[in-house]
């Protein structure tokens, strides 16, 4: 199945392909957000990331569905 991953600026530097902001990804049905992070080979602990699926706060073990939009973010450094 296909989902869209949105990588926010800092994370774009942590993928094997380098700067990529938005990726269409094919993953196995039943995959979770954590599986997607592993699939993307992001070199950061999944636990460090802020997550959203289709614009809503989501946990690492949320099961993804076809055409989901997944935002993977690191927190901002000020504020």
């Amino acid at each position: 199945m296909k989902v869209t991953a949105h990588l926010h600026t800092i994370l774009q530097r942590h993928t094997p392909e380098g700067l990529k902001g938005r990726l269409d990804v094919n993953i196995q049905p039943g995959s979770t957000v954590e599986d997607l992070i592993k699939h993307l080979e992001i070199d950061l602990e999944p636990d460090y990331l802020l997550l959203a699926v289709n614009g809503r706060v989501a946990p690492l073990d949320q099961v993804l569905e076809q055409a989901d939009h997944v935002n993977l973010m690191l927190p901002i450094s000020g504020g």
């Binding site: 926010h8 902001g21 802020l50 959203a52 973010m73 927190p75």
Partner: peptide, 20 residues
């Protein structure tokens, strides 16, 4: 905005940074 680094601020507020 949805592709920006402040997208998380909208979802989690400034509290997003506490764990980090």
């Amino acid at each position: 905005f949805p592709e920006s680094d402040v997208y998380g601020l909208g979802l989690y507020g400034t509290a997003e940074v506490l764990k980090y």
